[in-house]
Amino acid sequence: MDKSAAQFFDLIDRLGNLVRVNLRAAGGQHGLQPVHLQALVYLAIANRYSNTPQALTEYLGLTKGTVSQSLLLLHRRGLIERQGDTDDKRLVRLALSESGAQLLKDIQLLPDWAQVITRIAPQRSKIALAVLKELLLALQLGAGNRSFGVCNTCQHNLHEGPRSYRCGLTEEKLSLHDTRMICREHQPRQKSRR
């Protein structure tokens, strides 16, 4: 393995371990496993095209069975709501309940991270973030996975005027809030060549 690739892998693996430790600690206080918190966090940022069990399964990279059992537990605890889709009766839509949103607010998954990031020079933090985003996208696309990017960074996002947006894929109007959520159908914008 290339030395820099090995260093990236090692650092990201170690950061991932810290994230899992934080999730275990935060979830353990509420009888939840890391996968349950990951599902809640996902539903807090997923748009209306991405709030299905199948999209969650793809995002987490887990089996349908694991995700299904996790969703059953979250629903029984009143942390998520399940609704049939108004247009496609085969689809189930998921949303955080008020209790689920409050739980995420109460457990504060990122306080240590937020504190540490403030100690890094803003320009260095910005560069690190850009590199990690580029690495994530390259790995996702290289493996044939969806990018689940933020709507306003998608090639299908059409800015039609002041606070007026439309999805070029579905032809549906998008609110400003919609454009800030992640989307299963996200296609990264092509970088313009100069």
Rank of each mutant, 00 (worst) to 15 (best):
L74Q: 02
A130W: 08
L137H: 07
V41Q: 13
I80N: 00
A114M: 11
N17Y: 08
G161S: 13
R124K: 11
G31N: 07
Y49N: 09
A55P: 06
L37F: 03
N51W: 02
A121V: 12
T118Y: 06
L72A: 11
K89I: 10
V41T: 03
A25R: 14
Q7I: 10
A55T: 08
T63S: 15
R184S: 07
D13E: 05
D88W: 08
N22Y: 05
R20D: 15
Q29R: 14
M181P: 00
S68H: 13
G84F: 09
R77M: 13
D178R: 00
L23W: 03
G168R: 15
R146G: 01
P162V: 09
A128Q: 13
L136G: 03
Q7G: 00
K191M: 09
D88I: 03
Y165R: 01
A6V: 02
P111D: 14
A95K: 14
Q115N: 10
L135E: 04
D85N: 15
E185T: 00
R194D: 11
G144T: 08
D13F: 07
G84H: 13
L136E: 15
D10Y: 02
C167V: 06
Y165K: 02
S147D: 12
T57W: 04
L132K: 12
G142T: 09
Q83E: 13
R184V: 01
L72K: 05
G161V: 11
Q83S: 11
T118E: 15
N152C: 08
G16K: 09
E171R: 15
T179N: 02
L137Y: 11
I45C: 04
L18G: 12
Q54A: 09
E185A: 01
L103T: 02
L11Q: 12
R24A: 04
I80V: 13
H156I: 00
H30L: 01
N145V: 03
L132C: 09
L104H: 03
L15Y: 08
I117Y: 10
L110W: 11
L103P: 01
L79D: 06
S97P: 04
S175G: 12
V116H: 14
Q140K: 11
L56P: 00
G27K: 00
R48N: 03
R146M: 10
A95G: 07
G27A: 07
G84I: 09
F8L: 12
D87G: 05
F9D: 11
L104C: 06
Q187I: 06
L136K: 14
G28K: 05
R189H: 06
S4W: 12
S4L: 15
V67P: 00
V35T: 07
L62S: 06
R119A: 06
Y59T: 03
E185P: 00
Y49Q: 04
W113R: 08
T63I: 00
L103V: 05
D87K: 10
S50K: 07
L158W: 03
L137D: 12
Q102E: 11
V131L: 15
V116D: 09
P162R: 14
S50C: 12
R124S: 14
Q102T: 12
A39C: 11
E98P: 11
R189F: 00
A101R: 10
R24I: 02
S97F: 05
Q29W: 06
H186Q: 07
S147A: 15
G31H: 02
Q187D: 02
R189N: 07
L32D: 01
A26R: 10
E98V: 10
E81W: 09
E58V: 01
L135D: 05
L129W: 15
R90E: 14
H36M: 06
F8I: 07
R77Y: 01
E185I: 01
